[in-house]
Amino acid sequence: MFTKEAYKGTLEEQYNTLSKQLDALLTGETDLIANLANASALLSQFLDDVNWVGFYLLKEEGLVLGPFQGLPACVKIPIGKGVCGTAVAKNETMLVDDVHQFPGHIACDAASRSEIVIPIRKDEAIVGILDIDSPLLARFTEEEQGYLEDFVAVLEKHLI
């Protein structure tokens, strides 16, 4: 079910399959960490040309590292700092074509060149973010942003 061959067709069809698989994977499970771990593994297996896929959770002191796939990462990120903290401060998705041009970028992995960060909400409040890094410049498109936001919407409906 979760093989690369399962994702055939247009980009829209591929992402629709991905979101359906996430929904099936999370249905019946209420543990946040288990669900985020499976979501990061599913995305990491699906996406090409990425070097980090994971989550940060909003705690009192800022963003704290959650489940991820990739090299070891920064454990805490202050709100308003780096791409992740800025996404929370602005309450919006951040699509960055070149992280080295982003003011205050926090370099957890020197190989990362582009990044997308999507806020995760529960009852309208941000509870965390999905962070995806790529070693390629401009890896993520606005079209993919929409599909990844849909993926996050599926994840959000499983948050307790």
Rank of each mutant, 00 (worst) to 15 (best):
S134Q: 10
L148V: 11
I120W: 01
I126M: 10
I120S: 03
A138Q: 14
V152K: 06
Y147H: 15
R139D: 10
I129P: 07
G146R: 06
L137F: 15
R139C: 10
A153Y: 02
I118N: 04
F140A: 11
F140Q: 01
F151D: 04
I118S: 08
V127P: 05
R121N: 11
A138M: 08
L148F: 14
I129V: 15
F151C: 11
L137W: 01
Q145L: 07
R121M: 11
G128L: 03
S134N: 04
P135R: 06
I132P: 02
T141V: 07
I116R: 00
A125Q: 15
D133H: 05
I116S: 00
A125D: 13
V127Q: 08
I118K: 10
P135W: 03
E149P: 08
F140N: 05
E124I: 09
I118T: 00
G128C: 12
E142S: 09
V127Y: 10
T141P: 01
P119F: 13
E149W: 03
I129H: 02
F151P: 04
I116K: 05
R121H: 15
L137Q: 04
D123R: 13
K122T: 04
L148T: 11
K122H: 14
A125S: 13
D131Q: 07
E124L: 14
V152D: 03
D133P: 11
S134I: 00
A153F: 10
T141H: 08
A153W: 01
E142P: 04
I118R: 04
I118V: 15
E144M: 09
R139G: 06
P119A: 13
E142L: 09
D133K: 11
V127R: 04
T141A: 01
R139E: 10
L130P: 02
R121Q: 11
L137E: 10
Y147K: 12
T141D: 05
I120Y: 00
V117W: 03
S134R: 02
A138K: 13
I118G: 03
E142C: 07
F140G: 07
T141L: 05
V152N: 03
I132G: 08
A153H: 03
E143M: 13
I116E: 00
V117L: 09
E143Q: 14
I116A: 02
L130A: 02
E143G: 07
D131R: 10
P119D: 12
L136I: 02
T141W: 08
P135H: 07
R121T: 14
A125T: 11
G146L: 13
L136K: 15
A153C: 00
V127M: 09
E143P: 04
D150R: 13
F140W: 06
L148P: 10
D123M: 12
A138W: 04
A153P: 00
A125H: 14
E142Y: 00
D133Q: 02
L130Q: 06
K122L: 12
V152W: 05
G146C: 12
E124C: 12
K122R: 14
D131T: 02
D150Y: 08
D133Y: 09
R121E: 14
S134V: 07
V117S: 02
F151N: 05
A153R: 14
V152S: 03
E143V: 12
I132K: 01
D131H: 12
P119M: 13
E124V: 12
K122F: 11
F151A: 05
F151M: 06
E144D: 12
L130S: 01
I120N: 04
R121S: 12
R139N: 13
I132N: 02
L130F: 07
D150A: 15
F140L: 07
G128D: 03
Q145P: 05
